Measured scan of single mutants.
Amino acid sequence: CKPMSYEEKRQLSLDINKLPGEKLGRVVHIIQSREPSLKNSNPDEIEIDFETLKPSTLRELERYVTS
């Protein structure tokens, strides 16, 4: 899986911020299912740190927000 450039992460962040509330739950689910360290975090307060997410997680999020 190809790592994301800074610009791609920035765009992904903007795209996620534009999602309606009902789609954000899926974003949280994708992150929690792929990032063991965030599995028990509160979905309402999850802070997405794009620098610490795996490339595969970032690509999955990218696919979701652009679908």
Rank of each mutant, 00 (worst) to 15 (best):
G21P: 15
R34G: 09
T66E: 15
L24H: 10
K54E: 10
S37L: 12
G25N: 14
L53E: 05
S13M: 06
V28R: 15
L14Q: 12
I48E: 02
K9Q: 03
R26Q: 12
E22Q: 07
R63H: 09
P43E: 12
D44I: 08
R34I: 03
L19W: 00
R10T: 04
I30A: 14
N42F: 01
L12A: 00
P36N: 08
T66W: 10
Q32L: 07
R59C: 06
K39R: 14
S67W: 09
F50N: 08
I31W: 01
D44T: 13
N17G: 08
S5W: 00
E60C: 09
M4D: 01
Y64E: 09
K54L: 11
E8S: 03
S67K: 09
R59N: 02
L61F: 03
L38H: 12
K18V: 03
E8R: 04
T57F: 00
V65G: 06
Y6P: 15
L61T: 07
F50S: 06
Q11R: 11
I30D: 05
K39E: 08
P43S: 12
G21T: 15
L58G: 08
N40M: 11
M4W: 04
D49E: 11
L53H: 04
L58C: 10
I46R: 12
P20E: 11
P20K: 11
I48K: 09
V28L: 14
P55N: 10
Q32V: 03
P36F: 01
C1V: 08
N40F: 12
K39W: 06
V65Q: 01
S5R: 03
E47S: 11
N17Y: 07
Q32E: 08
P55Y: 05
S33D: 07
K23P: 06
I46G: 08
R34C: 12
L61S: 07
D15S: 13
K23Y: 15
L53G: 03
D15C: 13
I16M: 09
R26H: 15
L12H: 02
D49V: 02
K18R: 12
E22L: 03
K18P: 03
Y6H: 14
E47W: 05
K23N: 13
Y6G: 11
H29M: 03
E62A: 08
T52L: 12
D44V: 06
Q32P: 00
S41F: 12
S5Y: 01
S37V: 09
L38Y: 14
E47L: 12
L14W: 05
R59V: 04
N42R: 13
E35V: 00
K54R: 11
N40V: 12
I48T: 04
L12N: 00
S5F: 00
M4R: 01
R63K: 14
G21M: 13
E62G: 03
L53D: 05
C1Y: 15
C1W: 09
Y6R: 14
L24T: 06
L14V: 10
H29T: 08
E7Q: 09
R34Q: 09
E8F: 04
P3K: 10
N40L: 13
E7H: 06
I46F: 13
L14S: 12
L38N: 01
S41R: 14
V27D: 08
N17L: 05
Q32D: 05
G21K: 15
K23C: 15
K23E: 15
P3A: 04
G21E: 14
P55A: 06
T57E: 00
D49I: 01
S41L: 15
V28K: 15
E45Q: 08
E47Q: 12
G21V: 14
T57L: 01
Q11H: 03
G25W: 08
S13F: 04
M4E: 02
Y64G: 06
P43C: 10
G25P: 08
I16N: 02
K39M: 10
S13P: 00
K39P: 06
R59M: 07
L38C: 05
V27F: 03
E22N: 11
G25M: 15
E47G: 08
R34T: 02
S67Y: 10
D44K: 12
K18H: 04
P3M: 05
R10A: 07
Y6S: 14
Q11A: 04
V27Q: 00
Q11M: 04
K23G: 14
V28A: 09
K54M: 14
C1I: 05
E22A: 07
E8C: 00
Y64D: 07
T57A: 01
S41Y: 14
S33F: 02
S37H: 14
S56K: 06
Q11G: 03
K2G: 01
E45D: 13
L61Q: 09
L61K: 09
P55F: 03
D49Q: 02
R63T: 13
L19K: 03
R34K: 11
S5K: 04
Y64C: 09
E22Y: 02
K39S: 11
Y6L: 12
L19G: 01
I48C: 06
E7Y: 02
T66I: 07
R26Y: 10
P43V: 15
I48R: 06
E62D: 07
K54Y: 01
M4V: 02
S33T: 09
L12E: 00
K54S: 14
L14N: 12
E22M: 09
E8M: 03
R59T: 01
P20D: 14
T57N: 02
K9M: 10
I46E: 13
P55C: 07
L19P: 01
L38R: 09
E51G: 05
M4N: 00
Y64T: 04
K23M: 14
G25Q: 15
E51D: 14
D44W: 04
D49R: 03
V28T: 11
S33Q: 09
E7V: 02
R63W: 02
K18F: 07
Y6M: 11
I31M: 05
E7I: 04
N42T: 07
S33R: 06
V65M: 10
I31K: 00
M4A: 00
K9G: 00
L14D: 13
E62Q: 15
K18C: 05
L38F: 15
E60N: 07
E60F: 04
I31S: 02
P55W: 01
S13G: 09
N17T: 06
K39I: 09
L24K: 15
E8L: 01
N42M: 10
N42D: 10
Y6W: 09
R26P: 09
L14I: 14
L14T: 09
T52Y: 10
R59K: 01
L19D: 03
I30N: 05
I30M: 11
S56I: 04
R63S: 11
P36I: 04
H29W: 02
L19M: 08
L19F: 01
V28C: 07
E45L: 14
L58S: 06
K9F: 07
L58D: 06
F50I: 11
E7F: 02
L24E: 01
K39D: 06
S37N: 13
R26M: 10
L61N: 06
N17D: 12
L12V: 01
G21H: 15
Q11W: 00
M4K: 03
T52I: 06
D49S: 07
L24W: 14
V65R: 06
L58H: 05
T66P: 07
L53N: 04
K9I: 09
L38Q: 07
F50W: 08
R26C: 03
L19Y: 03
S5L: 01
E60M: 04
H29Y: 02
N17S: 10
E35I: 06
R10G: 02
E22P: 11
Q11D: 04
S41A: 11
R10P: 02
S13N: 08
E22T: 06
E45R: 09
L61C: 07
R34V: 06
C1K: 12
L38K: 08
I46M: 12
I16S: 01
E35F: 00
D15P: 01
F50A: 08
S56V: 04
L12G: 06
L12C: 03
V28I: 15
P43I: 08
E60V: 07
E62H: 11
Y64I: 04
L12R: 00
L19H: 03
Y64K: 02
P20V: 10
E51R: 02
S67I: 08
L58Y: 06
S13A: 11
S41W: 15
S33K: 10
L12W: 02
P20M: 02
E62C: 07
I31D: 00
S56R: 06
P3E: 14
E35W: 01
F50E: 10
E35C: 00
G21D: 13
F50V: 15
P43A: 13
N42S: 11
E7S: 08
H29S: 13
N40S: 10
K54T: 08
I16G: 00
S56H: 05
E51F: 01
G25A: 15
L53R: 04
Y64W: 04
P36S: 05
Q11K: 11
I30Y: 03
R26W: 09
I48Y: 04
S13E: 10
K2C: 15
L12T: 04
F50P: 13
N40Y: 13
N42I: 13
I30G: 03
L53A: 02
S41Q: 11
K54W: 02
E62S: 13
C1Q: 10
I16L: 09
V27S: 00
I16W: 02
I30E: 05
S37W: 12
E60W: 00
E47M: 12
E35L: 03
I31F: 05
C1S: 14
S5H: 03
E8I: 05
K18N: 13
V28G: 07
E35H: 02
K2M: 03
S37Q: 10
L12Q: 01
I46A: 07
S37T: 13
K18E: 01
E7D: 13
E60Y: 08
D15I: 14
K2V: 10
G21A: 15
T52N: 13
M4C: 04
